[in-house]
């Protein structure tokens, strides 16, 4: 190829192609650029990846909203229990539905870990220097962002159907979403953690069903604690979901006291429980990711 005859007939275009090749070679030999070595690098890239997949597929969002809306309509409007609760049962249930959508979205946070394992993306990510903790936190964060957006939509729907807005204000709405944020962070961490080793979506579905419904029904999301037997009240008090619902009701509905209704805990305690829950489970998730993501 490089004998004199061929060389003499090299056209300009070939010459250009050779220059191009030379340039590429030089680039390949030059040192890699200065890398971001922070333990959190790649966190936003990973989170964003899951979020892009989510908002590019609005069907998913719509389907996830069907259930809480049906519940609102069925129990809040059609059955409308004449319970003596602040703001009426519909408003009372609406606050519970915010927790419901957070819980059900968080429960599926682990599913994307399972899919990433199955389809190889997890191995690709693990072969890069991205922090193992960042992989876990990204899965938690994407679930938190999604669940809060969905909760905002559910809140809008509830208001449109007649939720009591007398106590709505910037502080009460922001405060409610803050408490939902901690609830979502804790629960998403829990479900991601349970999925770290799993590549089997049937098992993951079973885990979701096992935890989801008890967490919902053994809470004050649907019915007042007072209407429950004593042992169940104890379970409700151990369930972090209850404190989120309690806090949201205190803020959004001004539900501090009413005949036949009492708060589960003071507002500061609701926050305390959820911040503790979120901190504990996310730390546990990060620690486990160091051990469990590689074998």
């Amino acid at each position: 190829m490089t004998d004199d005859l061929t060389r003499s007939t090299v056209t300009t275009q070939e010459q250009l192609a050779q220059d191009e090749g030379q340039k590429m070679r030089e680039r390949a030999f030059r040192a890699a650029p200065k890398l971001n070595r922070s333990p959190l690098h790649g966190l936003w890239a990973l989170t964003n990846r899951d979020l892009v997949k989510w908002y590019k597929n609005p069907i998913q969002l719509v389907i996830s909203l069907v259930q809480p809306v049906v519940w609102l309509g069925l129990f809040g409007k059609a059955i409308n229990l004449s319970l003596d609760v602040p703001g009426g049962y519909f408003s009372y249930l609406s606050a519970g539905m915010l927790a419901f959508i957070i819980l059900f979205t968080a429960a599926f946070a682990g599913m994307s870990v399972v899919w990433d394992r199955r389809f190889g993306f997890m191995n690709k990510a693990l072969s890069t220097p991205v922090g193992r903790g960042a992989i876990v936190v990204s899965k938690v964060l994407q679930s938190v962002v999604r669940s809060l957006i969905q909760a905002a939509v559910v809140l809008g729907i509830a208001v449109a159907f007649g939720m009591d807005t007398a106590n709505f204000g910037i502080m009460t709405v922001a405060g409610s979403f803050a408490i939902l944020f901690f609830m979502s962070f804790g629960l998403s961490s829990l479900f991601v953690m349970l999925a770290l080793r799993s590549a089997d979506w049937q098992t993951q579905m079973a885990i979701i069903n096992l935890l989801n419904l008890p967490l919902l029904f053994a809470s004050n999301a649907l019915l007042p604690v007072e209407s429950m037997p004593g042992w169940l009240q104890t379970v409700v008090r151990l369930n972090p979901v209850s404190y989120a619902v309690d806090g949201v009701r205190q803020m959004l509905l001004g539900a501090t006291s009413a005949p036949g209704y009492s708060v589960l805990a003071p507002l500061w305690a609701d926050f305390g429980v959820l911040v503790g829950f979120a901190a504990l489970l996310s730390l546990l998730g990060i620690v486990l990711s160091w051990r469990l993501l590689s074998k």
Partner: peptide, 22 residues
């Protein structure tokens, strides 16, 4: 291992982000 929902370029850039390449 590429993510089917992303484009080819997005996939490579995602990889680059994971390496911390600006």
């Amino acid at each position: 291992t590429a993510d089917e929902d992303l484009t080819g370029l997005q996939n490579i850039l995602l990889c680059a982000d994971l390496y911390g390449i600006p």
